[in-house]
């Protein structure tokens, strides 16, 4: 790999290893994410995918290996990328606009200014008119969109999503997937997405890393050569099903 290529990596995870009390959870995982790319980590539940995210976010230090973002070492450092969970983790006592502006508040931006700065994004995230509602007044899908918006406000270039739609019903989940594809076209962000839903991974991603059961190891990397923007019909296409077959066989 030459240096020129190395520089175009937004996020690079080099040979990370992590054990918890003698239990090997992540075993020599290397992953990269390019600019504007949508990459999924697909693997069984409890396979250590979330540990990988915690390491990227800097909450955990890997035993071995390193994390570089834009070529800079960020191993074990928080405050660069944030992530979004299945749980929306919105603060029930703050209005949606202040929840979304939370990352700015942490950076020390004054409340009014923070509100001004996030206001214009409500339309993109489909939350226009709900700025001054409390989280409990929103539907599950809307809360997830607000959580995504908060994550985006923190780091616009890299977004980590940890099974963000896992807690939603099937219909809402579908709609949220279409919506996510649409919105990411506008956001110009690199996205790393954790899921155990094969169709979801294929439908959304440019590339998929298939992870093994614990300890997490990269079993295979699959490029998804489906045209973008993608429509719902694509799920029933021959190409889609060929990829699906390949993924199932690897899993």
């Amino acid at each position: 790999m030459n240096t020129y290529l190395n520089n175009s990596y937004k996020l690079k995870i080099n040979n990370i290893k992590k054990t918890f009390e003698d239990l090997l959870v992540v075993d020599d995982v290397s992953i990269y994410l390019k600019e504007n790319e949508f990459v999924s980590l697909l693997g069984p539940s409890g396979s250590g995918k979330s540990t990988i995210f915690n390491i990227i976010a800097g909450l955990l230090k890997p035993d071995e290996g390193e994390i570089t973002i834009d070529g800079e070492d960020f191993t074990g450092k928080t405050g660069r990328v944030s992530y979004m969970y299945q749980k929306d983790l919105l603060l029930p006592w703050k209005k949606v606009i202040d929840n979304v502006a939370l990352p700015l508040a942490i950076k020390g931006v004054k409340k009014q200014e923070a509100r001004e700065r996030v206001k214009k994004y409500f339309k993109i995230f489909g939350l226009e008119g709900f700025e001054y509602k409390y989280p409990f007044q929103l539907s599950g899908g809307m809360r997830q969109r607000a959580a995504l918006m908060r994550t985006y406000m923190f780091s616009r270039d890299i977004i980590l999503l940890d099974e963000p739609f896992g807690g939603l019903d099937a219909m809402t989940k579908r709609n949220m997937q279409y919506w996510l594809l649409e919105v990411t076209e506008n956001l110009k962000a690199s996205i790393l997405f954790i899921t155990h839903d094969i169709e979801e991974a294929i439908f959304l991603s440019d590339r998929i890393y298939i992870l093994s059961n614990r300890p997490a190891k990269v079993k295979e990397e699959i490029k998804i050569n489906l045209p973008k923007p993608r429509k719902s019909e694509i799920i029933t296409s021959i190409k889609f099903n060929e990829i699906k077959k390949q993924v199932i066989n690897t899993l």
Binding site: N54, A57, G58, L59, T78, G79, V81, S82, Y83, Y85, K87, L89, L91, L102, P103, A105, I106, K107, F154
Partner: peptide, 21 residues
């Protein structure tokens, strides 16, 4: 919720900020 505390940490919040917010 521990996940909420982790989220705050990942966003670079200090202990005092986590307490206040």
């Amino acid at each position: 919720d521990r996940d909420l505390l982790n989220l705050m940490k990942s966003m670079g919040a200090s202990r005092l900020q986590i307490f206040k917010m």
